[in-house]
Write a protein that binds this DNA or RNA. Structure first.
Length: 105
DNA sequence: AGTTTGACTGGAG
DNA sequence: CCTCCAGCCAAAC
């Protein structure tokens, strides 16, 4: 049998890959786009399972508080390179960088 | 098969 | 925005 990635995870990867540069989004927003707004946790698991070869900008995915992923401080540096501004408390300024699907070209 | 854990969220303090 | 509590869901033990 084939070790194929679940359809749900594949869908998550497509959405994450569609995040514009310099923007971020929350797990809940992604979960909602997949059709399961209650499965935000599964999105996080999908990121853990996320293959590194996809060029997947998973660093653009943060939690509802704008907090970067635990155990991955490098994410902050990657976002700063994208042009994202961080607050002194170490959180992304969601007010400025939260992905607006309606602004997607 | 039941318990615990986790890249979560929303409400309350 | 921070912390604590409750809810939700899948994977790990």
């Amino acid at each position: 049998m084939k070790s194929e990635i679940s359809e749900y995870e594949k869908l998550v990867y497509e959405i994450v890959a569609a995040i514009p540069k310099g923007k971020v989004t929350t797990y809940g927003q992604i979960a909602c786009m997949t059709g399961y707004p209650e499965r935000s946790r599964m999105v996080g698991h999908a990121m853990t399972n996320a293959p590194k070869k996809r060029g997947l900008p998973c660093h653009r995915v943060v939690n509802h508080a704008g907090r970067t992923a635990p155990g991955w401080e490098e994410q902050r540096k990657l976002l700063e390179r994208e042009g994202v501004r961080f607050r002194p408390n170490g959180n992304v300024d969601l007010r400025l960088h939260e992905w607006d699907i309606f602004s997607d070209p």
